[in-house]
Nucleic acid binder design. Structure first.
Length: 566
RNA sequence: UGGGGAAUAGUGUAAUGGUAGCACAACUGACUCUGGAUCAGUUAGUUGGGGUUCGAGUCCCUAUUCCCCAGCCA
């Protein structure tokens, strides 16, 4: 497993500043305890990574600890599959919670005791209003609510009714336990919020033990409290809930962590809500939660992202209290920066064009030395076989090249990387006029790629031996959505209308150099001049499949684009 | 029109009353056996209006804009 970098040098964002102050004032006896509390109702995505890196990062930086806690208070949406994936993803990102793996559902008994306590204080009551009535009684943003007719039941009656709710004597939705706060409070969350609802639903952990389940507001503070969390970090939309968080904890005089809210991550060209990601999966608009186009951790992993690239990204985007949308290019920048340092280089040809070296001996095979990673001398070298018939990239040849095209064209000399200078002499076309084969000559004196006479070429091409190369499938990806903001839709449309029809391009007939024969799923490498690639888990013995993680920066593509628009 | 938050280059993010800095993006150029990488450089910013102050992105007032809240979801 990759180990996260030292967290010591992380700049002090507003949350870390609070932590530093609290340590200085000894507010929590010097303790720093954070938690990452996902609900297991979906797969984790890059937005969660921001929260994970924040919480685990703070713990690492300040000698504290961070708990992984499943906030599993709604059995209707939660599944073990999600628990498993979340554990895998957080671990893959490189974080370690030690023995501190918890489940909110493990605290249900304690929460129930607290509820009894609140009823006994006259601060909670069983309400017989149904969901619709409850909404009507709540009032609106500008109008106060009305007290429930059941608001003033006696403590004894409430105790009895709540006991019978727990015992399963009432059907779903027939009653709730509510906090007695203030139906005219300007913050709607304080208008007698529901603490428990009746749900005869089997829980992924507690099974059928309970048929009443705590609501988030009631449960979350106690989960934090029981675990002696110091800084309970959550996203902005919970700001309105903080008064309730505080109220509940204070009513029962429980240990009281500090809730701090920060802005969730938004990224261009993608959606980040679990609901929408679920929809993409359920409607089969992607191949699954781990589709390489998904912003999920599992999707990014399969795409070839490295944990350290994601961590670096989370580190540099900062933490704040206002909504912002990060340019996807920044994520890709972090990716390339990491992959450039760590990826072994290999040669692969995606759209092959056969070339024949006319003056190269028939049947001869030369094993040429190639550098594995120019950024890392320790990565060593490997042998690449050179033969009379080769493949180069179709895009690397043009019959009638424009001025700025440096690659192969009739009469032009280029270098084949680590091999020889070659010159194109003859073009073979099919009946339709497509170039299907090139005849070239090589200069034996340029073996290894340097001309003894000091002559220069403008371009170096990648290539593979037609006889020795391995066939492979390559999957190219583009943004899943065509718009920077996929939610930018016409009236009546949905974000799925902005799906990019060209987000996946499958190239079934590619060739990679033979050193890749033993490549295993999730192995990463750079295809020289093309980009970073990763072996897809769909690969089987004898059938290699590569995902393009991200392309290399391509100034030629930029030049082409400029000329098109000019 | 209730309450809670927030506004710094195109995008992010620093500056905690004292020269508005950094990154990404874009654009130049150098170098290169990856048109990669690397290096050098350019463009570009404090939401508006008042006030306090020797001095304001920062403090005060005011206006504007944006986000969140009316689940028995989290």
């Amino acid at each position: 497993m990759e180990i996260p970098d030292k967290e010591e040098n992380v700049k002090l964002d507003f949350i870390r500043s609070i932590v530093v102050e609290d340590i200085a004032s000894n507010k929590w006896d010097g303790r720093v305890v954070t938690r990452f509390p996902p609900e297991p109702n979906g797969y984790l995505h890059i937005g969660h990574a921001k929260s994970i890196c924040l919480n685990f990062g703070i713990a690492a930086q300040f000698n504290g600890r961070c708990h992984l806690r499943f906030d599993d208070t709604n059995p209707e949406k939660e599944e073990q599959e999600y628990v498993n994936s979340i554990i895998e993803d957080v671990r893959w990102l490189g974080w370690n919670w030690g023995e501190h793996l918890y489940y909110g559902s493990d605290y249900f008994d304690k929460m129930y005791e607290y509820a009894i306590q609140l009823i006994k204080k006259g601060k909670a009551y069983v309400c017989d209003l149904n969901a619709e009535q409850t909404r009507q009684y709540r009032g609106t943003l500008t109008q106060p609510g009305k007290d429930s007719p059941y608001r003033n039941r006696s403590i004894e009656e409430n105790l009895d009714l709540f006991e019978r709710m727990k015992a399963g004597q009432f059907p779903d939705g027939s009653r709730t336990l509510r906090a007695k706060i203030d139906m005219s409070h300007p913050n709607l969350n304080m208008r007698d919020p529901v603490m428990y609802r009746i749900l005869h639903s089997s829980h992924h952990r507690s099974g059928d033990k309970w048929c009443i389940y705590p609501m988030y507001d009631w449960a979350h503070g106690f989960e934090d409290s029981i675990e002696k969390i110091t800084h309970s970090i959550c996203t902005l939309e919970f700001e309105n809930h903080r008064p309730l968080y505080d109220w509940f904890l204070d009513q029962v005089e429980a240990y009281h962590p500090q809730q701090i809210e920060f802005a969730r991550l938004n990224l261009t060209f993608t959606v980040m809500s679990k609901r929408k990601l679920l929809q993409l999966v359920q409607e089969k608009l992607v191949s699954g939660w781990d589709d390489p186009r998904m912003p999920t951790i599992s999707g990014l992993r399969r795409r070839g992202y490295s944990p350290s690239a994601i961590r670096e990204f989370c580190k540099i985007i900062g933490v704040n209290k206002f909504n912002s949308t990060i340019d996807f290019a920044l994520l890709e920048h972090c990716l390339r920066e990491d992959l450039n340092k760590t990826s072994a280089r290999v040669m692969a040809v995606l759209k092959p064009l056969k070339i024949v070296i006319d003056n190269y001996p028939e049947g001869q095979v030369e094993e040429l030395d190639a550098v594995n990673n120019p950024e890392d001398p320790n990565a060593g070298t490997r042998k690449v076989p050179f033969t009379k018939e080769l493949y180069i990239e179709q895009e690397d040849f043009m019959e009638n090249p424009p001025k700025k095209f440096f690659r192969l064209s009739p009469g032009k000399e280029v270098r084949l990387r680590y091999a020889y200078f070659i010159t194109c002499n003859e073009i073979v076309k099919d009946d339709a006029g497509n170039v299907v084969e090139l005849h070239c000559t090589y200069d034996p004196a340029t073996k290894g790629g340097d001309a003894p006479d000091g002559r220069k070429v403008k371009s170096t091409l990648h290539w593979v031996s037609a006889e020795k190369a391995i066939k492979a499938e390559v999957r190219l990806y583009d943004h899943l959505f065509t718009k920077e903001n996929p939610d930018d839709v016409e009236e009546g449309q949905s974000f799925t209308d902005n799906l990019n029809p060209n987000s996946l391009e499958i190239l079934p007939e590619c060739f990679v150099e033979p050193s890749l024969l033993e490549a295993k799923p999730l192995d990463r490498c750079q295809f020289e001049r093309l980009g970073y690639f990763c072996v897809d888990p769909d690969s089987a013995k004898g059938k290699l499949i590569f995902n393009r993680t991200v392309g290399l920066k391509d100034t030629w593509a930029k030049v082409q684009k400029q000329e098109q628009t000019a």
